[in-house]
Amino acid sequence: MTPNGAFTVGFILIALSVAEPGPRGAAVLVALALAFAVIEVGGASLIALKRAAIVVLPLALFMSLVWVGLVGEAPYQIAADIVGTRTAALVYVAKLSGRLFFVVAVIQLVFLRFADLTPLQLVRALALPAPVKRMLAITLSLIGTLRHAIDRAHIALIASGTLTRAPSWRNAVHSWRLIQAVWLSAVTILIGRMRDKWPVEGTMARLDGALDRGKSRVFAGADRIWLPITLAAGCAILLADLAWKR
């Protein structure tokens, strides 16, 4: 399966899930995602579910606090100006959290499908225009540079007594110094690279060559099975919902 194929399948699944399918449609959607997880991702699917739970559970608890605890009724009850119930609010939160869990899990599954690739290999395998691939590769590289700059500047500012490790008023007043130190560090590094290092080493031409190597294909292999199945499932979900609504 190509990254383009996996991202397209993921995109269709997420688009269908936010289209608020009925119970039958949701069942088809979950079955399809589970099949993708078992066949394409295997044991690592559990990691995707765990990560999705880590992201969504705190949000779900917070939503419960707001909707069930504070508001005490569901939005449709407020809109219709009818007497609301906490049970309806709880059902609303459960549906919303379920959908968010599905979205996060699908994104994680798609990326875990290519967990054996380095970020540069993944960008190379994507069938995208060369400037976009170059941009993604440079962005990933600069994020690494900025993270190092943040670590260095943060430690230096703590050592100098300007910032503290714990939340503090001093952090609120002086944190802009950390941002400025990181920015100046990044700009200085980039000026050096763009003026001297990259032209001498031919970095851009080499990067383009590295990203183009192997001629990535838009869809191939298992994409030809997954894409028709996902599209057919999409149609089935829409039809099932129409039948259910009647």
Binding site: P131, T139, I143, L146, S175, L190, M194
Partner: peptide
Amino acid sequence: MFTTPRLILIALGAALNCSIGTIVYLVKLP
């Protein structure tokens, strides 16, 4: 429009947007 320095600037802006979260996390501000 898209000179090499500008393409690098786009990448730098994107990287800054992504990395600033780390700074906010480190200084623990809401």
